[in-house]
C-alpha cells in the first residue's frame, strides 16, 4: 500500500509544480455546483431591477453543461483532466462571485444603477447589442492590425538599417531613442489635423507606437550577433547580404518577437485611446458613446469584449512565437 502510494506520487510528481491541485477530484464537482448555484440564485431570488434574465440563465446553464461534458471527457483524456483540474478551483470561485454579484445588484439594489449593473444585465446587453459590438470589434481589429503590421514592418526595416550600417546608426538611432520615449498618443492632435480621416490617423498612431519598440529591439538583436557566427559564415563563402539576411536577422528574431510583444501592448492602449478621442467606430468609440448615454452596462460589455479579443491576439502571438522559435526550446538562457 505504502509502495503504491509512492509510485503514484512519482508519476504525478512532474505535474505538481506545473498544475494546481492535479490530483484533487472534488473541485471539478464543486465548480459545477457553484455555477449551478449562481443559476439557481438568479432563477429563485426575485429581482428588484427590471431585467431580461434569459441570456444570463442560458449562459450559466451552457457553462455548467460544458463543464459537465469536460468532466466526463476528463476520465478518458489525460490532457483535459490536467487542465480541468487545474482550473477547477478558479471556476468554483467564479461561480460564487457571479452569485454574490447578482445578489448585490439585480436582486437587492445594494449597488446602484447605472454604475453597477449586474451580470444579468451585462450578458443581456452583449446579446442584444451583438451586431453593434461585432461591427465595433471588426473596426477596432482592422485598425489594430493595419497599424501594428505596418509599424512592425517599418520597425524591422529601421532596426536592420540601424543595426547593420554605421551611418544609419549614427543619424537615426538618436532620433529613435528620443521619439521612442514619447507616448504615441501625444501625436493625436497633429494626426487628426494632418491626416485625411480618423482611420489613417489611428493607423499612424498605432504604427508609431509599435515602430519604435520593434526598431529598438531589432537593431539591438542584430548588433549583438556573436562575431564567431559571421566568421563561420565568411569561411563558408558568405557575402555581405548573406551575413545580414541569413545570420544577423535570424539571430535577431527572438528580439523581434519581444519588440512585437511590447508593440502589441502599446498598440492596445493607443487603439482604445485614439478611438475614444478621434474615431467614429470601434470599441473605444463605443465606450465613449455608451458613456454619453450613461449606459454603463454597455461600457462593461465593451470592456469584456476587449478583454476577450486582446487575450486571443496575445495567445495567437505566443503560439506563433513558440513555433518560429522552436529552435530555442530547451536552451537555457
Amino acid at each position: 500500500m505504502e509502495k503504491n502510494k509512492k509510485s503514484k506520487h512519482e508519476v504525478l510528481g512532474s505535474d505538481i509544480g506545473v498544475y494546481w491541485k492535479p490530483k484533487s477530484k472534488i473541485w471539478v464537482a464543486a465548480s459545477i455546483a457553484t455555477v449551478l448555484l449562481a443559476l439557481l440564485v438568479d432563477v429563485l431570488v426575485p429581482n428588484v431591477q427590471f431585467v431580461n434574465p434569459v441570456s444570463y440563465q442560458v449562459f450559466l446553464g451552457g457553462f455548467a453543461a460544458v463543464l459537465t461534458v469536460l468532466w466526463i471527457a476528463s476520465r478518458y483524456v489525460g490532457t483535459i483532466r490536467k487542465k480541468l483540474y487545474h482550473k477547477a478551483q478558479f471556476i468554483f470561485a467564479v461561480g460564487i462571485v457571479l452569485a454574490l454579484w447578482d445578489l448585490l445588484t439585480t436582486k437587492s439594489g445594494i449597488f446602484k444603477l447605472p454604475f453597477f449593473p449586474g451580470p444579468v444585465q451585462i450578458v443581456d446587453v452583449i446579446v442584444k447589442e451583438r451586431t453593434t459590438l461585432l461591427i465595433s470589434t471588426y473596426y477596432s481589429m482592422r485598425l489594430f492590425f493595419v497599424g501594428l503590421v505596418s509599424g512592425t514592418l517599418l520597425g524591422i526595416a529601421t532596426g536592420i538599417l540601424i543595426g547593420w550600417y554605421r551611418q544609419w546608426y549614427y543619424w537615426l538611432f538618436p532620433v529613435i531613442k528620443i521619439s521612442g520615449v514619447i507616448p504615441a498618443i501625444a501625436w493625436l492632435p497633429i494626426a487628426i489635423v494632418l491626416l485625411p480621416n480618423s482611420f489613417s490617423a489611428g493607423v499612424f498612431l498605432i504604427a508609431i507606437a509599435s515602430w519604435f519598440s520593434v526598431a529598438f529591439m531589432v537593431s539591438g538583436g542584430i548588433a549583438s550577433t556573436p562575431k564567431v557566427y559571421y566568421e563561420a559564415a565568411k569561411t563558408l563563402g558568405a557575402g555581405e547580404s548573406f551575413l545580414l539576411f541569413h545570420i544577423a536577422l535570424p539571430n535577431a528574431v527572438p528580439d523581434i518577437f519581444s519588440g512585437i510583444s511590447t508593440a502589441t501592448g502599446l498598440s492596445f492602449l493607443t487603439l482604445i485611446v485614439s478611438e475614444m478621442i478621434g474615431a467614429k467606430a470601434g470599441l473605444g468609440w463605443y465606450i465613449n458613446w455608451a458613456k454619453a448615454w450613461s449606459a454603463y452596462d454597455k461600457v462593461y460589455a465593451s470592456i469584456i469584449i476587449m478583454a476577450i479579443a486582446f487575450s486571443i491576439i496575445l495567445a495567437v502571438l505566443t503560439v506563433v512565437r513558440n513555433y518560429v522559435l522552436r529552435w530555442k526550446n530547451g536552451i537555457v538562457q
Partner: peptide, 15 residues
C-alpha cells in the same frame, strides 16, 4: 570557402 574553418565550439547556427 576554399579555406574551411572549424571553430573550437563549433559555432553552428542555432536556428
Amino acid at each position: 570557402f576554399e579555406r574551411g574553418y572549424v571553430f573550437q565550439q563549433g559555432a553552428l547556427f542555432p536556428w
